[in-house]
């Protein structure tokens, strides 16, 4: 089977890879590029554990073909912290115990970051609906929602 050559930008770095036509962006990230922070929980867009940004849009990387990323810009959980400095959401998730097993955490952080960039002052209901496509089975969402709301308030205060 002939493989497709793709040139794209991942977390700001130009990246090349080869993929099969049916490979998803998630397959490529995890199996070709060893960016395993994006998780496969369902491969059907129902759990959000593979959430990434594609040209500024929050998407499930399991619902994007690797070949589609040609010339696009992809941002993953691996690009969220700046060196040793965590994004305020990442720090808040640790400080406020907003994770238990942690498997859904990368996807939720990518999604929550996009929310706060679009809407720095979301209501609880807005956070809950924005994150409805990110399943978490451990926490009951309570501490996740609180961490996002608290971070939003902190970031507004710092701005």
């Amino acid at each position: 089977m002939s493989r497709i050559h793709v040139t794209t930008t991942i977390n700001g770095d130009e990246t090349e890879y080869l993929c099969e036509p049916q490979d998803t962006l998630l397959d490529v990230l995890r199996d070709e590029l060893d960016l395993t922070g994006s998780k496969e929980g369902c491969a059907s867009g129902d759990c959000g554990a593979c959430s990434v940004m594609l040209d500024g849009r929050l998407v499930c990387s399991c619902l994007v073909l690797g070949a589609e990323a040609e010339g696009r810009a992809v941002e993953t959980i691996e690009g969220m912290a700046s060196g040793e400095e965590l994004h305020p959401l990442q720090q808040a998730f640790i400080d406020k115990a907003a994770l238990q097993c942690g498997i859904c955490t990368p996807g939720i952080l990518v999604a929550a970051k996009d929310l706060l960039e679009r809407n720095p002052d979301p209501t609880e209901e807005e956070v809950r609906y924005w994150l409805a496509g990110n399943l978490c089975r451990c926490t009951g969402y309570d501490k996740i929602i609180r961490a996002v709301l608290d971070t939003a308030a902190d970031m507004r205060g710092a701005a």
Partner: peptide, 9 residues
């Protein structure tokens, strides 16, 4: 294990 789990590591 917090940092590992919020960074995807």
């Amino acid at each position: 294990d917090g940092v590992d789990k919020v960074t995807g590591r």
